[in-house]
Design a protein around this nucleic acid. Structure first.
Lengths: 234, 234
DNA sequence: AAAAGTTTAAAGTCTACACAAAATGGAAAT
DNA sequence: ATTTCCATTTTGTGTAGACTTTAAACTTTT
C-alpha cells in the first residue's frame, strides 16, 4: 500500500501518540502497547511503528527498553537544539552587514591556565588570536582564541587578517569533539573597550573547546555585545 | 543476513562516511554517490544506507535533496543539544541536596510588559509565583514566574509551598511550544538579595515561554547563582 | 530568451519478513 | 535467602522489493 492516502504513516503515528500523551490518555510512566499491537491498531507494519516510536524516543518523549517495553517519560526531557551558527551567519540573519577585524595574532607559550584546561604540556605553543566581529559598525562579538600549534601546524602561516580564525579552522581541520559552555561574565577593561561597554558590565560569554581524536585543537572565548540573547524554539 | 558479524550496519556506514568527510576524501559541497551505489559498495540494502545517511543529515553533516542527491555540508551546522533538566535534577547531578522554597504566590492583573510578551488581553489575570531553588543551603536559582490563569484555571488552587511551579506545571498541563532564551543580566536589588550577590553582579539568566496549542501558558525568568555555566558536549 | 510542460533521477516511505540483542522475571541451584 | 541460569518478550536492525514525492534537467512552446 502507499503512504499517501488511506494508510497510516510514521508521521501520523507520531502525531497520534503525542496527542494521546498530551491528552493524558497515556499517562507518564505508563507502559505503552508493544509495537506489534500498535501495528495492528494503526494497520501498518511493525517497521513503521518502530520508526515512529524510535523518533519519539530520540526526541525525548519516550523511553524504550528491550523486553521492558516503551514508557512515557514523566519529565519530557525535551532537549533544546541550539544551532550554533557562525558569527557571519548570525549577523546576516539579523539583516546586518558582517564585518571582521583582526586585533592581534601572536605565537606564544601556552599560559598555565590553558595548559591545565587543554591538558597541554607546559612547553607547548599556541597561536593566540584576538579579533572582532561587527554588525555594520556596531561591535557584535569579541573573540579571544588560542590554537594549539602542535595540533594544527599550518596555523603559523594562516592569514587571520583576511579570514576569521573560526572560519579558517572549519575549512582547515576537522574536529571530533566539542565542549561548549555559556555563562555570564563581567566585562574587564579590554572586553569593555572592544564591545564599547562600561567596565564591569554583564557580558554573555561562550567558551568552546574543540578536539580532534582526543588532541586539543582550540580554545575560544566569545564575548557578546550588550543585549545579546541566545534563543531557541521547540 | 545479520548485523553482528560480516555485514555492514548503518552504524558502520555512518562511521565510514564521517571518516571520509573528516579525511577530506569527501570535500564539503561535493556530491556523494547515490544510495543505490553506496548500497553496492557497502554490500547492504539501500534501506540501510538510507538510514545511515538520513541520520547523518539529521545530525547536520549532510544535506539531502530528492533528485539532487546528498552533499557534505560545508559548515557542519552541528546543533548543540542542551538538555534542559529540571532544577532538582541539575542540583542532584552536582551531588547536592535539592531544596525548594516558595517566596510568594499572588494572583494579579497581568502587567503590561507581560501582556505584550504573551499577547494577553489587558484584563487577563496571572498567578505570579516567586521561588528559590537551593543546593543544600546555597542559593542555586531564583525563579520569577507568571502563569496565565485563563489557560490553567487550576493554578489558583495549586499549593506552591509544597511543590515548585515548574514541577507542578509539568505534571498538570502539557505544552506544545517552548521558546527558551539565555542572556546575561545584571542583578537588581531583589535578585541580588535572593542569590546572595552584590547588586549589579552579572547573572546568567534564562527566559522560558510555554504555549499549549497557541495559548500562552507561562513565562518564567530563571536567575542562576554566580559561577553557573550551561555546558554541553558533542 | 522566457515560460510552460515533461521526463527522470534521487531520496522518502511503506510492506513483509527474519533474525539479533537485551533484559526481565521466574526457575533452579546453592 | 541469595545467587545463578534460562526462557521469553520486546525492541533493534537487517534484507528485498515496491511505490511515491520532489525537484533538477531537459523539451517544447510562446
Amino acid at each position: 500500500m502507499t503512504q499517501s492516502n488511506e494508510t497510516t504513516s510514521y508521521r501520523d503515528i507520531k502525531e497520534t501518540v503525542l496527542a494521546r500523551i498530551r491528552s493524558g490518555e497515556w499517562q507518564p510512566d505508563s507502559l505503552l502497547p508493544n509495537e506489534q499491537d500498535l501495528a495492528v491498531e494503526f494497520s501498518c507494519t511493525r517497521t513503521t511503528v518502530n520508526r515512529a516510536m524510535r523518533e519519539l524516543a530520540d526526541e525525548g518523549f519516550l523511553e524504550r527498553r528491550r523486553k521492558a517495553g516503551t514508557r512515557v517519560l514523566s519529565a519530557p526531557q525535551r532537549q533544546a537544539r541550539f544551532t550554533i551558527p557562525k558569527v557571519r551567519d548570525e549577523v546576516e540573519a539579523l539583516g546586518g552587514i558582517y564585518r571582521y577585524a583582526l586585533v592581534s595574532s601572536v605565537a606564544e607559550r601556552a599560559p598555565d591556565w590553558l595548559c591545565a584546561r587543554l591538558a597541554l604540556k607546559p612547553d607547548q605553543h599556541v597561536m593566540h588570536v584576538r579579533c572582532m566581529h561587527f554588525n555594520g559598525n556596531t561591535p557584535f562579538q569579541y573573540e579571544d582564541r588560542w590554537i594549539v600549534i602542535d595540533s594544527v601546524p599550518q596555523v603559523v602561516n594562516a592569514d587571520f587578517a583576511s579570514i576569521g580564525p573560526n572560519e579558517w579552522l572549519i575549512q582547515t581541520v576537522p574536529f571530533t569533539n566539542v565542549e561548549l559552555s555559556f555563562l555570564a561574565s563581567r566585562a574587564d577593561e579590554s572586553v569593555a573597550a572592544f564591545l564599547d561597554l562600561p567596565i564591569g558590565e554583564p557580558v554573555f560569554t561562550g567558551e568552546r573547546i574543540t578536539w580532534l581524536e582526543g588532541q586539543p585543537v582550540t580554545f575560544a572565548k566569545m564575548y557578546f555585545a550588550a543585549g545579546y540573547r541566545m534563543t531557541t524554539q521547540f
